[in-house]
Design a protein around this nucleic acid. Structure first.
Lengths: 339, 339
DNA sequence: CTTGGCACTCACTGCGGCCGAGTGCCAGTT
DNA sequence: AACTGGCACTCGGCCGCAGTGAGTGCCAAG
């Protein structure tokens, strides 16, 4: 029970601080939350919490604010996931259902998430390697130049220009097309490594060099190249978290423009079926040490299509944000799964 | 000559202010630039320039800073375009030449421009309506659902999912494909309105409804829909222009996330063959009244493929920025023109 | 274990004064 | 007529200073 109240105090501190963005003191705490004890008692608890590293004071004789560790405990043990209201769910649905194509779905999602959470939103495009090939198209652009267009089950379209060593006519292009399609359609690219590599050997000798080049491109472009596309929106929301935050704003923006960094943040959450939260230094990105990332994967089945999430100040309404991210991810997953 | 010196003073003010970001006074001006006159004389000139609205003082007894009108005069009459160094040109070239596809070209360009100018860079994807159709691919996704992929000369790929009223089998899909390709290949979409609309009538009766739906999609998606895609980078650079600027940063970021606004800014510069500069209120966007936009079109020939440019503080090194934008645009134009 | 009381700390605020960059004006010079 | 040096004046920015109050830590009593 002592232990219990301490946790209750921590929860109260986090909640108040998230609301006010000001260090919260013992008096206000005892008043605003019905803890049933006096400020002095709260002070003792706070002292203990500080000892254990869950809260800290910005300077002597100021209130306390949560530390990374405090937020972590809060997220892990003290907060559920606030369910969204029916109206909010409807809003998500109606916002997304007008989308005309995959690109549109992603762009709408990211804007929706940014507006909803009032944070920076990030959405990964459905990954090529975890969805299977629907069709490969080959178009001749010139005697030695082809355009390959790869279409996946999830509706993503990837294009590559290929320069060949030997000229190819329309007829050969058609053969290449059918060879590729026979070999690859329905394959999950992540698993098709050997199949793809073996393809050239089964073709007519004249075509082999071309096919080898092309399968090389497929592998390089879709399997090995990890830098997939992402969309981002709501960077303006970063300015909301003002002051102390403001000086680091530049470095945060810089980090967010770095594809690799974003992929790491969002991508790692992709495989887990749940919403994951990374707080402060847990992000492993120095520029983001004052931020938190709430992310999840979307797309049903064992292979998530991609990840999405938001980046905001540590001082964030975690329960609500997690709910919003989860809801959008679920809806987008259904939308893309149905295609 | 009196007039001449005044302009010289204006130029000096602009140059100094761009460098220091501090109101510039008569004394420093007379010293740093070899104007050959005393501070008192400079003061008289400054007084006149202020009278005419080219400069202003932030508060009494401070130095002067240029107004919108002052920058405008500077850009129009007082500055040429600094040519880039050979090394810089080479840097541009080597940065861009590794691009593997259109998407990559655009993304590299925008990052390059942002790094080069240290401003926010914006690049419009090559417009569909001003480039001609290379190939249209039709893929069946389900009995009543098709995926159309439209590939243009410039290598841009656009995709649309089409839901049909009647079922279509593979054979019919092939017919539709060839009908579309016969009718549209080589057409400039902006001019093909009637041709596209007339297509269905020439086909077999059973196909007409389908074809009508599909041509409708083509028109709607590629000709009528003005919201084309754009890429942006370097938003972190906005924080460089600190302080006074900082409070409006939020609204600037918001404006920049608005596709429509960006399209207007960049798109309008697209048709002109030269680099255009919009200063302050000339942007016609309230949130950008403290910024300047330097933009140009890229892609040779009478039809520009798209526009690109940078957005930065009015306090900007115009000659250099204009040179950089022009150089990148020229190179990207060549790159895409050759494809 | 809790509580009221009490002394203490320290960021924040408002105030007054100083400083200096920069201006505007004027009288003298070329 | 244009330029220059001199001079008084303005006013934002920068101390230093004391007052205030929220918040803490400790302690002794319940």
């Amino acid at each position: 029970m002592l232990e219990d109240r301490r946790l209750e105090v921590l929860r109260a501190i986090v909640e108040d601080f998230v609301l006010s963005n000001e260090p919260v003191g013992s008096k206000a705490l005892a008043e605003r939350h019905s803890l049933g004890v006096s400020p002095a008692t709260v002070r003792n608890d706070m002292s203990a919490l500080e000892e254990e590293g869950y809260i800290t004071q910005p300077h002597t004789s100021a209130g306390r604010i949560p530390t990374d560790k405090g937020y972590r405990l809060f997220v892990d043990r003290l907060s559920g996931v606030k369910p969204l209201s029916r109206a909010e769910r409807r809003a998500i649905q109606s916002f997304l259902e007008g989308a005309v194509d995959l690109d549109d779905v992603v762009r709408r999602s990211v804007r929706l998430l940014a507006q909803l959470t009032r944070q920076v939103a990030v959405v990964q495009y459905p990954s090529m390697s975890s969805s299977s090939v629907r069709h490969i198209e080959v178009v001749t652009l010139g005697p030695r130049r082809l355009l390959m267009v790869i279409i996946t089950e999830s509706g993503r379209v990837e294009q590559r220009i290929v320069d060949l060593l030997t000229p190819v006519d329309e007829e050969m292009a058609a053969e290449l097309r059918s060879a590729l399609n026979c070999g690859l359609t329905g394959q999950r690219l992540a698993e098709a490594h050997e199949v793809v590599a073996a393809l050239p050997d089964q073709a007519r000798p004249e075509l082999r060099p071309c096919l080898a080049t092309m399968t090389g491109v497929v592998l390089e472009a879709l399997v090995e190249r990890p830098e997939e596309r992402i969309a981002m929106a709501g960077t303006a929301n970063l300015t909301r978290a003002t002051v102390d935050f403001a000086d680091s704003l530049r470095s945060i923006l810089e980090a967010l423009e770095e594809q690799v960094v974003l992929m790491k943040l969002i991508g790692s959450a992709r495989e887990t079926g749940t919403v994951t939260v990374r707080i402060g230094r847990e992000t492993d990105v120095d520029a983001l040490r004052s931020t938190a990332v709430v992310a999840t994967g979307y797309g049903r089945g064992p292979f998530a299509l991609g990840g999405m999430g938001v980046v905001g100040p540590m001082r964030m309404d975690y329960p609500w944000t997690m709910a919003a991210v989860r809801a959008v991810a679920k809806y987008v997953g259904e939308l893309l799964g149905a295609d």
